[in-house]
Design a protein around this nucleic acid. Sequence first.
DNA 1: CGGTCGACCTGT
DNA 2: ACAGGTCGACCG
Length: 371
Amino acid sequence: MAAGVKLLRFAGGFVCGAAVSTASCVAALRLHRAEPEEPRAPSPDTVSEVQQLIGRFGLPETGAEVRCYANHTLSYDQSKRTPRWVAEHLTNQKLQGQADRKHCRFRADPDIPACFSAGNDDYLGSGWSRGHMAPAGDNKQSERSMAETFYLSNIVPQNYENNAGFWNRLEMYCRELTQRFQDVWVVSGPLALPAEKDDGTRTVSYQVIGKDSVAVPTHLFKAVLVQSSNTTDQSAAPVQALGAFIVPNRPIGFERKLRDFQVSLSELEGVSGLTLFPKLPRGGGGGGDGPGGVADLCELDGCQLMGYKEFTLYLTGRKVGGARSLAKLEQLMAELRRQGIEPDDYLNKLYLKKKEQLTNQEPPQGTAGAG
DNA sequence: CGGTCGACCTGT
DNA sequence: ACAGGTCGACCG
C-alpha cells in the first residue's frame, strides 16, 4: 500500500536484529534500556554464581539451531516435527542440471534426534501430503542437494491440491525470477495462525498427524528477495525487491492471484515471530512497514503465476517427456485437446520427438508381427 | 512440476 | 510369512 516516498533515516536507529542469539539480545536490551536504580544489584560474582547454580544440570535446549545442507538451510521445530523456516538461494545457473526426483525418497533427517523426528508413516494415509519447503525442483544441479530436500526436516503436512497447484506455481514463479534477477533468496515455512470464533475470541488450533503428532500448518509463508546489479551502470546500487506471502493450507484455484496473498514483511514477521533478512536495510518510516530502498516485488515484477492454460501445457509437457508407451502419449495429447487447449510449438516438437523415440523402441504390434 | 499408491522383489 | 525398498502407473 504505502508506495509513496520513502524516507531513509540512519540517525541512531538500531534494529533488534535476530542475527544475534536470544541471550545476547537480552544483554543488548539491558545495555540500552536505562534501568532505574536496581535495588540490590548483585555483583558480577554473585550473578555468575547464581547462573552456575541455575544451570547446574544444563539449561533447556530447543534444537532450533541453524542446520546447513548442500543447498538449503533451516531451523527445526522439535515440538511440531516440522521446520520453522527454510532458506535457499537461487540463481539461473544453479537451476540447470539433470538431477531427478525419481532417485530420491522421503526419509527422516539423520541429524534430527529420533524422538523429535517425523517419519513417513506419520504422513501416509493421514490425508495430508508431504510438502517441500525448499523445493526439489530448485536442486536440479545436484543429486545430493535434491536428496537432502527429501529429509522430513524440510517437509510439512500440506493439502494435496495446494501442493500440486497454487504452491507449485508459486515455486515456479520463484525459479522464473532467476531469469530476470541475478540472485533470488527465498525463505519458506509453516504457520499456525489464530482463527476468530463466533464470540470474537481468537484461538490457535491445528491438527496433528501420526504417532509423532506432526503439526499440520494452517498456512504457509514465503518471503522472496531478489537483487540485480544495474546492467547499464555497474557503479549504481543494485536493485532490490521483496515480496512476502501467506497462503492458506487448502486448495486455491486459478481465479486467485498471488497478490491476493501478499502481506507486508512486518506483518509476516509479526505472525511468524521471525525477523526475516535481518541484515537487509530497513526503512525508518513512521509505519515501519517495509524495508527502505527495497522495492515491492509485485509492483516491480507483477507476481503473475502461470494461468490455467499455460500450467496445463507445462504439465502435459512434463508428462509427455515421461511417457512410456505410444498409447499413453496419444492419450495425453487427446486429453489436452479435450480440455480445449491446442499444443504450442514447444509441446508439438516434444511430442514428435517422443513419438519417434517410442516408435523405435516399441516395434509395431498388432499387424502380422511376432509376439 | 508436485504428489500417492499398489505390485513386486528381496532378505531374514 | 512379513517388513522394507524399488519400480511403474496414476492423479492435479
